[in-house]
Amino acid sequence: MSEVRDLQLKVLWLSGRLYHRHEIVEPHQHDFAQVQLVLSGQEYTDLTQSNGDDSVSVSVFANQLVFIPPYTTHSFHFEHETVVLDVKFDLQADIAGLIEKNASQHIFDVEDVSPFYALLNEAIPAEQKRFPAAALQLDVDFKQLLLSTIFKQQPAESSTHNLDRLIDINTDFPLLKYLQDHYAEPIQLPELAAHFNYSKNYLIRICKRETGLTPMNLLQHIRLKHAQNYLEYTDLSVNDIAIKVGLDANYLTKSFTKTIGTHPIAYRKQSRQEHERNITLMNTFNRQSQPQIKNSVQHPMD
């Protein structure tokens, strides 16, 4: 059976990459589109359209995305350590024209980067072809995020992914939405039931029917997924992460280790090593065509 892919947008390659101070990517172009989402730090991007007449230099800050159309010469340089999610993808002419018509400014703010984090987690089973629709799901999810960002629409709530996928599917469930919005706050079952004017037993029953979990277990899952994202994509300490997700630091460490199977610090190291590798989804994509990263500082010879 041939691999199923989206007809309009096909993800070719993803990478979560750390660029160091003074590193540069020299001018180059390619026949596919590219998005770079800055997760931390700052990227300086120079773009020249295929006609050579339209050149622009932009600074891309954290939680901003730069869209690079096909056949656009571009280069990058970095004056600070910068973490970037890099996605390269094929576009059919119809959707490419629609995006380019509305992407003339190139830079877009991303209010919630967590769905983009989840793309890296989706890409691994897609690359390994663990199930037939894995790459198709990645194509569709990335297309939704890209269009939502460019057309200034809110993407669907997606604080979590695999029970995460279950949570994405059930975003219309009021209890789930409430927990996604308030997970960092102190929440107890009696107050939660009172908020929805339900008895505790009824709230537990409908939550288990919709998600397979009790309300407090669902809240725990959401908190741990946010903790995972903070560990993977920030340098916050475990104590600071615990505060952000509404947990005590010791409890977070114990619960994370028991549920995820590894200590938070070990998880951070392992996930960053995994995400910084390049993920190629199409065998025909020439990885050797990727531009080299150089250091712009010239060191004197000894």
Rank of each mutant, 00 (worst) to 15 (best):
P174D: 03
Y178Q: 08
L179D: 02
Q180R: 03
H182R: 00
Y183V: 05
Y183I: 09
A184D: 06
A184N: 05
A184C: 11
E185D: 11
P186F: 13
Q188D: 07
Q188H: 11
L189Q: 05
L189C: 04
L189N: 08
P190H: 01
E191M: 10
E191Q: 15
L192K: 04
L192I: 01
A193R: 10
F196G: 08
S199Q: 14
K200Q: 14
K200D: 11
R205M: 14
R205P: 10
C207E: 08
K208M: 15
R209M: 13
E210Y: 12
E210I: 00
E210D: 04
T211M: 13
G212Q: 10
P215S: 03
P215N: 03
M216F: 06
L218P: 00
L218A: 02
Q220N: 04
H221I: 12
H221D: 11
H221W: 07
H221G: 03
H221P: 14
I222E: 08
L224M: 06
L224F: 07
H226L: 12
H226F: 12
H226G: 00
A227M: 06
Q228T: 09
Q228K: 09
N229W: 14
N229T: 03
Y230E: 03
Y230A: 02
L231T: 08
L231D: 00
L231H: 05
L231Q: 01
Y233V: 13
Y233H: 14
Y233G: 13
T234M: 06
T234I: 08
T234C: 05
D235G: 12
D235W: 15
D235K: 11
D235C: 08
L236P: 01
L236V: 06
S237K: 01
V238G: 13
V238Y: 07
D240R: 12
A242F: 02
A242R: 04
I243P: 05
I243T: 10
I243N: 05
I243E: 09
I243Y: 14
K244N: 09
V245G: 05
G246N: 01
G246Y: 13
L247A: 12
L247W: 10
D248R: 03
D248Y: 09
A249Q: 05
A249V: 01
N250Q: 11
Y251C: 01
Y251S: 01
L252Q: 06
F256L: 02
F256D: 06
F256N: 02
F256T: 00
F256G: 00
T257Y: 13
K258G: 04
K258N: 02
T259N: 04
I260C: 02
G261T: 00
T262W: 11
T262H: 03
H263V: 05
P264H: 02
P264E: 00
I265P: 09
I265A: 03
Q270S: 06
Q270H: 11
S271Q: 01
R272I: 01
R272W: 01
R272H: 02
Q273P: 15
E274N: 06
E274K: 09
H275N: 07
H275I: 07
E276A: 03
E276N: 04
E276C: 10
E276Y: 15
R277I: 12
I279F: 00
M282V: 14
M282P: 15
M282D: 15
N283R: 15
T284P: 13
F285C: 06
N286A: 11
N286R: 04
N286E: 15
R287S: 15
Q288P: 13
Q288Y: 13
Q288E: 15
Q288G: 12
